[in-house]
């Protein structure tokens, strides 16, 4: 594997020692209104150095708005925001040089050649090297890590969707960022390109000491990519934890289904084991086709998304919050 740096990955260190890294992103009471529409109603979140954090939520929940505020591309209505120790509204070029940005959809520079493009944007970072972080990354090595070496001479417009997305990532990390924002990184990619992309992000994070904040509307992607998942719904963060933690938090009652003498039965209960024991005590071997289902995080999440999309955003968020705590 080609490494871009020789620095010790803070992520591995933090995971080994269990110590919390310093906060790279801190958001308190973030609010955003468009006219009379409140998109964000008091978002609190923290991202620590070396973490990969996914901001998960249905379409229209305000994920992109949040990330654009953090990137310094949008002015917030209210709240405190600090990104790498700086308020994004007042971030200067030196601050910008420490960030990497991969936005949702790009179709720019269609006629540029891949290597030419990556090299061009790398040049802007040259005056912003820091100790232990020489900027920019070497173009050819970066292309190699991203599997783009064989496409280096191709025009961007001739690339496949997955290759194009890797070019976007190359441009996002060519300045060797301390913090990388990825907005819906795999939207529109086929499953294989998607898996390759996930591997790629893991490699970059492990080798480059880069903290990542990504948005996605796909729980599966969040589980695969992130150390920690923040669920954004109804303009607030309604859940925060690793996939395992979130799963454990789901308290919805389990479903017990069975048939006795050909008749099907269904019962919802908080203590399925006791119910099953009771069934056997009463019916003995007449119980057939027994099935106990505990709703997964995914089902709870999808329910929330369905409610959200049917317009009851706030109610959906509140219910989800109840179920998960």
């Amino acid at each position: 594997m080609t490494s871009l740096s020789s620095g010790t990955p803070a992520r591995a260190e933090a995971q080994a020692t269990g110590a919390l890294g310093r906060a790279v992103v801190e958001v308190r009471g973030l609010r955003m209104n468009y006219g009379t529409t409140e998109v964000l109603r008091g978002v609190d979140l923290t991202v620590r150095r070396g973490e990969v954090v996914a901001l998960l939520g249905p379409n229209g929940a305000g994920k992109t708005t949040t990330i654009e505020i953090l990137e310094g591309f949008r002015r917030r209505s209210d709240g405190e925001v600090s990104v790498l120790g700086t308020d994004p509204d007042r971030g200067d070029e030196r601050w910008r040089a420490r960030l990497g940005v991969v936005l949702q959809s790009w179709r720019d520079h269609a006629r540029w050649r891949v290597r030419e493009l990556v090299d061009h944007f790398g040049r802007f970072y040259a005056p912003y090297s820091e100790e232990g972080r020489t900027r920019p990354a070497d173009t050819d090595r970066l292309l190699e890590v991203l599997g783009l070496t064989e496409h280096a001479g191709k025009r961007v417009e001739d690339l496949s969707g997955g290759q194009r997305r890797r070019v976007d990532v190359a441009l996002g990390v060519v300045g060797r960022p301390e913090l990388l924002f990825l907005d819906e990184p795999t939207a529109g990619l086929d499953p294989r390109a998607r898996r390759d992309f996930h591997e790629l992000i893991h490699r970059l994070v492990d080798e480059e000491d880069t903290t990542v904040l990504l948005t996605t509307h796909d729980l599966d992607e969040a589980e695969k990519l992130a150390d920690r998942i923040l669920i954004l719904a109804g303009g607030r963060i309604v859940a925060d934890g690793s996939a395992e933690q979130l799963t454990a938090l789901v308290e919805r009652e389990s479903e017990v289904a069975w048939t006795v003498d050909g008749a099907r039965h269904l019962h919802t209960t908080g203590s399925p084991a006791r119910h099953v024991a009771e069934l056997y005590r009463v019916h003995g071997d007449a119980v057939a086709n027994l099935r106990v289902t505990r709703p997964s995080l995914e089902e709870v999440y999808l329910d929330m998304v369905r409610h959200h999309e049917s317009g009851a955003a706030e109610r959906a968020a509140a219910e989800f919050g109840k179920e998960i705590r």
């Binding site: 030196r94 040089a97 936005l103 179709r107 944007f121 970072y125």
Partner: peptide, 20 residues
């Protein structure tokens, strides 16, 4: 067209990108 297709935004993503 460069405002529409994201070229201008790309320039904003890098330090001193607008100067360039």
């Amino acid at each position: 067209s460069e405002r529409e297709d994201g070229t201008l935004l790309r320039a904003r993503c890098v330090p001193d990108g607008m100067v360039g």
